[in-house]
C-alpha cells in the first residue's frame, strides 16, 4: 500500500517540479551560451538578465519546495484532500511516510538541480570532457574505497537532516490541528517551540562526555557521520511517531 501511495505522491510532485527543474536547467544552458561570450561588451546585456533570472529560479525553487512540503501535508492530510486520503484503507503512518519520502526526494532533487545548473553554465565543450582524466579519477576512488563510503554517509546525513526538518514542520502542523481555532498561529508557535527544544537537546547532548568521545573530530572518518545521522534521526523519528499518533487518535476533519 505504501508503494501505491508513493506512486500518487510522486506523480503530484512531478506535476509541479518537472516544470521548475526543467526551467532551471534550461536557463542554465541559456546562460552557458550568453554569459561567457561577449565579455568586451560594456553595456548592460542580456546576460545579466539571464543570470538574475537563473538565480531567481533557483531561489524560487527552494521556496516552492518548502511550500510544497507544507501544502502536501496540510492540504493533503489535514484539509479537504484528507477526506480522500484518510478514508483509504491504509494506516496513518503509511500516509505520513509516503509524504515524507516524497518531500525528502523533492528537496534532494532541488539540491541536485541547484548543483547541476552552475555546472551546465560553465562553457565546457565535449572534447574537454573527454580529455578529463576520468580513468585516473576512478582509479583513485578504487584505491580509497572509503571515499565512496564517506560520500554515502554524507548523503545519509543530508537526508536525515532534511527528514528532521520536515518532521518538525509536520509535527507543528499536527499540533495546530489539535486545536479548533487559531490553527496557523499555534502551528507557528509549535514550530518555534520545537526548534528551541531541538537546539537545547543538541547542546545538552554535546556536553555529555560519551557523546563527546563518540563525536571526536580526530576519528572523523567512516563512522562519525553515521553517528551524526543517528543523532539527527532519533528526534526525527520521535516527532514522526507523535505525528502518526495524532493522526491515528486525534484526527478531527470538521
Amino acid at each position: 500500500m505504501l508503494f501505491k501511495l508513493l506512486k500518487y505522491d510522486f506523480r503530484a510532485m512531478w506535476k509541479q517540479f518537472s516544470l521548475i527543474w526543467g526551467a532551471a536547467l534550461a536557463l542554465a544552458l541559456v546562460n552557458r551560451f550568453t554569459l561567457f561570450r561577449d565579455k568586451d561588451n560594456s553595456l548592460f546585456t542580456n546576460s545579466e538578465v539571464f543570470m538574475l533570472a537563473f538565480i531567481g529560479v533557483i531561489v524560487a525553487m527552494f521556496v516552492i519546495a518548502v511550500i510544497f512540503v507544507v501544502n502536501r501535508f496540510s492540504k493533503g492530510l489535514l484539509g479537504n484532500e484528507g477526506y480522500l486520503m484518510h478514508t483509504l484503507p491504509v494506516r496513518p503512518w503509511q500516509l505520513v511516510a509516503s509524504k515524507l519520502i516524497c518531500g525528502i526526494v523533492t528537496w534532494i532533487g532541488c539540491g541536485a538541480v541547484a548543483l547541476l545548473s552552475p555546472v551546465l553554465t560553465i562553457p565546457l565543450n565535449l572534447a574537454d570532457l573527454f580529455q578529463f582524466p576520468w580513468t585516473d579519477l576512478f582509479r583513485g576512488i578504487l584505491k580509497h574505497p572509503d571515499t565512496i563510503l564517506i560520500l554515502l554517509e554524507f548523503c545519509l546525513l543530508m537526508a536525515s537532516s532534511i527528514a528532521l526538518f520536515i518532521s518538525v514542520m509536520y509535527l507543528s502542523m499536527a499540533i495546530g490541528h489539535l486545536f479548533s481555532r487559531h490553527r496557523k498561529l499555534i502551528c507557528t508557535a509549535a514550530f518555534i517551540g520545537l526548534y528551541i527544544l531541538l537546539v537545547n537537546f543538541y547542546s545538552r547532548i554535546a556536553s555529555i562526555s560519551l557523546v563527546q568521545r563518540l563525536m571526536r573530530i580526530d576519528t572523523f572518518g567512516a563512522g562519525a557521520m553515521l553517528k551524526c545521522s543517528l543523532f539527527v534521526l532519533v528526534p526525527a523519528l520521535a516527532f514522526l511517531a507523535a505525528v502518526c499518533w495524532i493522526l491515528e487518535n486525534k484526527l478531527n476533519l470538521e
Binding site: G82, Y83, T87, P89, V90, N249, L251, E254
Partner: peptide, 29 residues
C-alpha cells in the same frame, strides 16, 4: 463511521471491527 473523526467516548464498530484499514476497505463514503 468512516474514521475522519475520533469519538470522545464510547465505541463503534463496522462489520464487527473497530474503525481502521479493514473498515475503510468496506466503506464507501
Amino acid at each position: 463511521l468512516c474514521g475522519l473523526l475520533q469519538p470522545t467516548r464510547g465505541t463503534l464498530a463496522v462489520d464487527g471491527q473497530a474503525i481502521g484499514p479493514y473498515t475503510k476497505s468496506v466503506v464507501s463514503y
